[in-house]
């Protein structure tokens, strides 16, 4: 075996070692990436950019308006939307989306609460007195 051959073999071995290392890291990276991705998805914050935040706020405002139209708005819904807008200004889109989603959910719940009682019902404890 010539020196050159030895050199080539060593080079090939090194290359393989590097490749192994690269592959191992790649695997770790993929796994980590997937985990991070799934956590983010679970938290509903996969994309936290200005456009997503603005869409979330638009949805929240629509829900708030819907609740208000039946006198069903809750106390803090407006405050959440206001703070979401402030968070957008500060560049904290994740916070803005979280607050806007909260406000949207409150708007929907307040609306449902009001329309589910659209017919007046005297509760049984008082009805028994008529």
């Amino acid at each position: 075996m010539s020196l050159l051959d030895k050199y080539r073999i060593r080079q090939a071995e090194n290359l393989e070692k590097t490749m192994n290392r690269v592959q191992r890291w790649a695997a770790v990276a993929i796994v980590l990436g997937l985990m991070a991705g799934s956590t983010a998805l679970l938290a509903g914050e996969m994309k936290a950019d200005a456009a997503t935040a603005s869409e979330a706020i638009t949805r929240a405002e629509a829900a708030q308006k819907k609740a208000d139209s039946v006198n069903g708005e809750w106390r803090d819904t407006g405050k959440f939307i206001k703070n979401a807008k402030k968070a957008v200004e500060e560049g904290d889109y994740a916070k803005a989306i979280r607050l806007a989603n909260k406000a949207e959910s409150e708007g929907n719940l307040g609306y449902q609460q009001a329309v589910s009682q659209s017919k007046l019902e005297i509760p049984s404890y008082l009805k028994a007195m008529y």
């Binding site: 809750w74 409150e106 719940l109 009001a114 009682q117 007046l120 005297i122 509760p123």
Partner: peptide
């Protein structure tokens, strides 16, 4: 009367 008997707010 309807207002009086309607559950409202987050505390219902």
């Amino acid at each position: 009367k309807k207002f009086y008997f309607t559950r409202r707010g987050q505390l219902n």
